[in-house]
Amino acid sequence: MSEVLNFRFLVDGEDFTSAGQASVKVKKNLRQLGISPETIRRVSIAMYEGEINMVIHARGGVADVNVAEDYVEIVLADKGPGIKDINQAMQEGFSTAPDSVRSLGFGAGMGLPNMKRYTDYMDIQSTVGEGTTITMRVNIE
């Protein structure tokens, strides 16, 4: 396999209004690499949902995007509170987001399900009190 391109972003946990900047940047980078619009759409939505989750729940974190020959990998790592019950968190409509976040149109309990929906592979490693690392891959058609 040819070399893997890496983009790394620090996700600011304080700033809700700038959430999504990393995803928009990734979208632009992937477009320059000639990746198809539908693949870019899937990657950038999955990453944005992850970014928003890190802002809402974990006071930010680190997002790594690795572009290989046949897939794009997104690794989101935070030192937040962790997820108590991953199966429950994966259910559409389940949310622990505060009301302040809901009033912005987030917190509908669709973030993790969307990440699953738009990716070909998703793995969640989470320890309560230590943090969460989510790895997602979208195959390049």
């Binding site: 809700f16 959430a19 999504g20 995803s23 928009v24 979208k27 759409r41 950038s44 912005l104």
Partner: peptide
């Protein structure tokens, strides 16, 4: 009817 800044990101990412 949502009008906060995040709608711009959502529109961009959803294409």
């Amino acid at each position: 009817i949502m009008s906060n800044i995040n709608v711009v990101a959502v529109a961009s990412l959803s294409d």
